[in-house]
């Protein structure tokens, strides 16, 4: 059974020139454990699509089922809970809270889940260790590099052990070396069975994924499975 299915999803934005269709009847199904790269030129609707996937935005039309549940039927609190526990977000701009220590940043989703202080601490430190930043718990975000910040953001996305990770151009602000580091983290997570959907317009980043979905002008124009990079190299 699919982890998520979208059928006939449409979304338009209200602009000065009238409604602008950003997504036109898009359908897609993703199975548990998949690693999907969403590709396409700028303005093709990738972010719009990711926001709907992540229950941050609602489509104008179409049906979205996530883990067997109809997302249209969920109220705001239920959507917040899905974002909190079922999905982990990684953004292009890292989106860490600048005033908080890295540990507090990573622990924030646990606050909204209602966990106690000690449990939050322990789990946040675990996650920081998992992304290779165990020594940085008390640092502030602006004290570390972009690649490290993105790894903290991944730790935050992981801290509630979500089944789905959504990443919108997570390497967009990183150089190729740190990009590769971050991608290896995603790869490892996928290896643990976490489903990953990742937007990129770089082919070598997309190559980490087994499936590539290509958007153009609000429509899916290509949906192909390629062998994993290592396998391709063999």
């Amino acid at each position: 059974m699919a982890l998520l299915t979208l059928e006939g999803i449409s979304k338009s934005y209200v602009t000065a020139a009238g409604p602008f269709p950003a997504l036109k009847r898009v359908s897609l199904a993703i199975a548990p454990g998949e690693f999907v790269a969403i590709m396409g030129p700028s303005g093709s609707g990738k972010s719009t699509f990711m926001n709907i996937l992540g229950c941050l935005d609602r489509p104008d039309e179409g049906h979205y089922r996530l883990d067997g549940r109809s997302v249209e039927a969920l109220d705001k609190d239920a959507l917040a809970e899905v974002r909190n526990s079922f999905i982990g977000f990684v953004f292009q701009g890292f989106n860490l809270l600048p005033r908080m220590s890295l540990e507090d940043n990573v622990a924030l989703p646990l606050v909204y889940r209602g966990l106690g202080r000690e449990a939050r601490r322990a789990q946040a430190r675990d996650m920081l260790a998992k992304v290779g930043l165990e020594g940085y718990a008390a640092s502030l975000p602006n004290r570390i590099s972009g690649g490290q910040q993105q790894r903290v953001a991944i730790a935050r996305a992981l801290v509630n052990r979500p089944r789905l990770i959504l990443a919108d151009e997570p390497t967009g602000n990183l150089d190729s070396h740190t990009s590769a580091e971050v991608m290896r983290v995603f790869e490892a997570l996928n290896g643990e069975g976490i489903t990953i959907v990742l937007v990129t317009h770089e082919a070598d980043i997309a190559a980490f994924a087994r499936r590539q979905v290509r958007f153009l002008d609000g429509e899916i124009v290509e949906d192909g499975t390629t062998p994993r990079r290592e396998e391709a190299l063999c």
């Binding site: 609190d77 917040a80 909204y112």
Partner: peptide, 12 residues
């Protein structure tokens, strides 16, 4: 926005 994205409810 960030807080909402990682699961803050309106009442939070």
């Amino acid at each position: 926005g960030i807080r909402m994205a990682i699961g803050a409810r309106q009442r939070d």
